[in-house]
């Protein structure tokens, strides 16, 4: 299957690969997917005192589109407030990376990873969780 140039770019030069200390109270971690399904994403955010995401890291087990979706997500997260981050939609990822229909689940997973990381941070801080729609 031909990949879009953007997917190839993120796959070849992934942004923000790595890990943050998940015990750090300013870090939110989201791990979604399952090995037997062929996709696992770990996405982490580090939030400063003003409530702005100052750093984001990911590690992904999955196809090129899954790697690209999570790499793109970390790029988009940096500099956003929690509320702004909450608004990132999988359809925006699909559009930006030009994902074919069989790869839409990769973007869904990335959105889920973002929301899970945000929830984890809010829970640590005792903040109310944002409402989640079910996929």
């Amino acid at each position: 299957m031909p990949y879009s140039d953007k997917v190839v770019d993120h796959y070849s030069n992934p942004r923000n690969v790595g890990s943050l200390d998940k015990k750090d109270p300013s870090v939110g971690t989201g791990i979604v997917g399952a090995p037997e399904c062929g996709d696992v994403m770990k996405l982490q955010i580090k939030v400063d005192e003003r409530g702005i995401i100052e750093d984001a890291k990911f590690k992904t087990f999955g196809c090129g589109s899954a790697i690209a979706s999570s790499s793109l997500a970390t790029e988009w997260l940096k500099g956003k407030t929690l509320d702004e981050a909450q608004e990132i939609k999988n359809t925006q990822i699909v559009e930006e990376l030009n994902l074919p229909p069989v790869k839409i689940h990769c973007s869904v997973l990335a959105e889920d990873a973002i929301k899970t990381a945000l929830d984890d941070y809010r829970e640590k801080k005792g903040l109310p969780l944002a409402e989640r729609k079910k996929h």
Partner: peptide, 24 residues
């Protein structure tokens, strides 16, 4: 593998079969 959360977990001593995964 440097990019794989599974490889990292195994290196940290996590038993992957015992993890409660979020199935989609």
């Amino acid at each position: 593998r440097e990019m794989s959360p599974l490889y990292e977990m195994v290196k940290e001593g996590v038993d992957l079969s015992k993890v409660e995964w979020q199935h989609h």
